[in-house]
Nucleic acid binder design. Sequence first.
DNA 1: ATTAAAACTTTGTAATACAAAGTAAATTAA
DNA 2: TTAATTTACTTTGTATTACAAAGTTTTAAT
Lengths: 98, 98
Amino acid sequence: MIDFDKIDKIIHEKGRLSIMTLLASRGSWNFQDMKDQLKMSDGNLITHLRSLQNAGYLNKKKELKGRKVTNYFLTSSGKKEFNKYLKILEQIVNQKEK
Amino acid sequence: MIDFDKIDKIIHEKGRLSIMTLLASRGSWNFQDMKDQLKMSDGNLITHLRSLQNAGYLNKKKELKGRKVTNYFLTSSGKKEFNKYLKILEQIVNQKEK
DNA sequence: ATTAAAACTTTGTAATACAAAGTAAATTAA
DNA sequence: TTAATTTACTTTGTATTACAAAGTTTTAAT
């Protein structure tokens, strides 16, 4: 049986799931690009980024070339937990075949 | 790009996702068996079942043999929407490979 | 008649997603 | 040099909702 209790609530929420998926697909994303890509409001995006950072799943680095830009990237813990999460998704997707 | 907006919020919530996955794995489940399997409280389970029923994703049938038992099963709309949802999960799971 | 079980309802709390508007610091345009 | 703009926030407020606990109703065993 799939253990639904193990679904990480922080990752599972729609907004944060999209952030985690973006960050997993590419090394790093800056605030503006994520905002455009995900069409979230500033306040909502930054709040989700903060929850993920508080969970230790991502970090940021300010880039000083030209305009101020903040880059976000997954920590190794973030990658690990996201992979765990993906394994549960896989089980859900594949369960019919069993 | 994965369209996260298309994630059905009714299905996506942890509790309801587990219900939908159960029902998709087998024709029907009664209230007690779901409760045991998912370890939810009566109130929580029935509330989620009601939301899913209000969305038209499942239905129930009272069984009259012996003790009263209520069986729950997916509607065709429920199956369809769940399959749509699974396709997005697949995209998330597979995106790294692209 | 009493007990017990199934399937609810009600009530209350705590969490949280989200938008909108405001702020501060840095950068560019005038 | 001053004004306008942009980035990355914070603050505030609303509305939704997950969840547990306890109570209710109906039916069926004993």
